[in-house]
């Protein structure tokens, strides 16, 4: 399941990601843009998602997703893999620092300004199918 979190309307990468994941053989539920965190949780339950890939492009992701991992665990979805990617901070900060902060929020993987979708596709294959 994929979608853009918060008051964030950046759609282009979301459409590309949906297409890329479908072409890679995944069954994709795309929530599109402007989603409050609760929508991811509700849709993950309904869709029986194996992985939830959240995007945030406008730099305001932190305020929205801090508690999302805890909410997933509380709803019994601790087995669902959580990913976040995009432009994860306002201004220019070191990638490692930014990604570490999101891993601290309970995400399985975080990608600050990823260069290619292939990184996510590789990680998904490893995390979901133990393919190296």
């Amino acid at each position: 399941m994929i979608g853009v979190v918060g008051n964030d309307i950046h759609i282009v990468a979301n459409r590309v990601l949906a297409r890329g994941l479908r072409l890679a053989g995944y069954d994709v539920c795309n929530l599109g843009v402007n989603n409050p965190p609760d929508d991811f949780l509700n849709a993950a339950i309904e869709f029986e998602a194996d992985a939830v890939v959240i995007s945030s492009i406008n730099g305001e992701g932190e305020g929205w997703v801090k508690g999302i991992s805890a909410a997933f665990i509380k709803s019994g979805l601790s087995g669902v893999r959580l990913y976040i990617g995009g432009n994860l901070t306002v201004g220019d900060r070191p990638r490692d620092e930014v990604e570490a902060r999101y891993l601290g929020f309970g995400f399985d993987r975080a990608y600050h300004r990823p260069i290619s979708m292939d990184i996510l596709l590789n990680d998904l294959a490893i995390d979901l199918y133990h393919v190296c």
């Binding site: 008051n7 964030d8 309307i9 402007n34 305001e60 932190e62 305020g63 306002v90």
Partner: peptide, 28 residues
């Protein structure tokens, strides 16, 4: 900022106060 754009003035105000206190900019 994006919250004001979405007419979410309360959230914008809250994040402004938070930014003023911490000095860390939480608005785009």
């Amino acid at each position: 900022d994006s919250h004001t754009r979405h007419n979410d003035y309360d959230r914008a105000l809250m994040l402004l106060r938070q930014s003023e206190e911490t000095g860390e900019n939480l608005l785009n």
